[in-house]
C-alpha cells in the first residue's frame, strides 16, 4: 500500500529521472487520494497521451527498481486480451498501471481532460504534470476496469460526495459508446444496478442509459 505522502515522494523522485516533461492523468485509487477519499492505495493508475511519454516514465520507474508484471490475476481474462491494455510495474506491494490514450476501449476524451479538477506539478530538472480527473470520470472509469476493489472505491466516492452528477457519467458513457467502446454502457449499467441497492439513483438516469429519453 502507498499513502498520499509516499505517493508524492515517489512521483517527486520519478520527476528527477524523467528526461523530458511528462503529462499524465490520474484516475484510480491515486486520484482518490488526491481528493482525500482514501488514505492509501495499492495501485497507481495513470494514462498518458502518447507512447513516448509512457516510455520516458517507464525508464524513470525502472531506474527506481520497478519490474514489469503480468496482468493475469489483476484484471479479468477478457481485458487481458484488449489492444489498449496497461503495462504494469511493481516493486514490493505497490503497483503502477500505465495506459496510453485509451483505458481498454475507453478513450481519454477531450471533455474528461477539460473536467480535470486538479493539477499536481512535480518539479525537478523536468516536470511531471499529474492531472486528476473529475470524480464522475473516476466513477465511470472504475466501472469499466472491473477489478476486485473498484466497486468499493465507487461506493466510497458516492457516499462521501454530496454533489455528484450522474448526468456527466451517463453523457460520458454515451459518448464512449458512440466512439467505439462497446462495453461502456453495459459496464456502467451493471455498476449502477449494484449501487442501486445501497444508494438512491433516480430512474431517469437508467432511462437515459437505456436510450428511453
Amino acid at each position: 500500500m502507498i499513502s498520499k505522502e509516499d505517493q508524492d515522494t515517489l512521483l517527486q523522485l520519478v520527476s528527477r529521472y524523467i528526461k523530458k516533461d511528462v503529462v499524465c492523468y490520474a484516475f484510480g485509487g491515486n486520484a482518490m487520494m488526491y481528493y482525500g477519499y482514501k488514505n492509501a492505495t495499492k495501485d497507481v493508475d495513470v494514462i498518458f497521451e502518447s507512447e513516448e511519454e509512457r516510455t520516458i516514465f517507464i525508464d524513470a520507474i525502472m531506474h527506481l527498481g520497478y519490474k514489469q508484471m503480468s496482468m493475469t490475476g489483476v484484471y479479468i481474462e477478457g481485458l487481458c486480451k484488449e489492444k489498449h491494455k496497461p503495462l504494469m510495474f511493481t516493486r514490493g506491494d505497490e503497483r503502477f498501471d500505465l495506459f496510453v490514450s485509451k483505458i481498454f476501449q475507453t478513450q481519454l476524451s477531450k471533455t474528461m481532460k477539460e473536467r480535470a479538477v486538479a493539477r499536481h506539478d512535480y518539479v525537478n530538472a523536468c516536470t511531471l504534470l499529474v492531472y486528476v480527473l473529475s470524480k464522475e470520470d473516476i466513477v465511470f472509469l472504475k466501472s469499466i476496469t472491473q477489478r476486485e476493489k473498484d466497486f468499493d472505491d465507487i461506493r466510497a466516492i458516492i457516499e462521501k460526495e454530496s454533489h455528484f452528477s450522474w448526468d456527466i457519467v451517463i453523457d460520458e458513457a454515451l459518448f464512449q459508446s458512440q466512439h467505439g467502446d462497446g462495453w461502456a454502457i453495459l459496464d456502467l449499467k451493471e455498476t449502477m444496478n449494484r449501487l442501486k441497492k445501497i444508494i438512491f439513483i433516480k430512474k431517469e438516469y437508467f432511462d437515459r442509459l437505456y436510450g428511453k429519453k
Binding site: 486538479a118 506539478d121 518539479v123
Partner: peptide, 14 residues
C-alpha cells in the same frame, strides 16, 4: 479554474 499544487521549487517566474 482548477486546484494547482506544486511539489518542488516553484516561484513567481514559473
Amino acid at each position: 479554474a482548477f486546484q494547482h499544487i506544486v511539489h518542488g521549487n516553484y516561484g513567481s517566474e514559473n
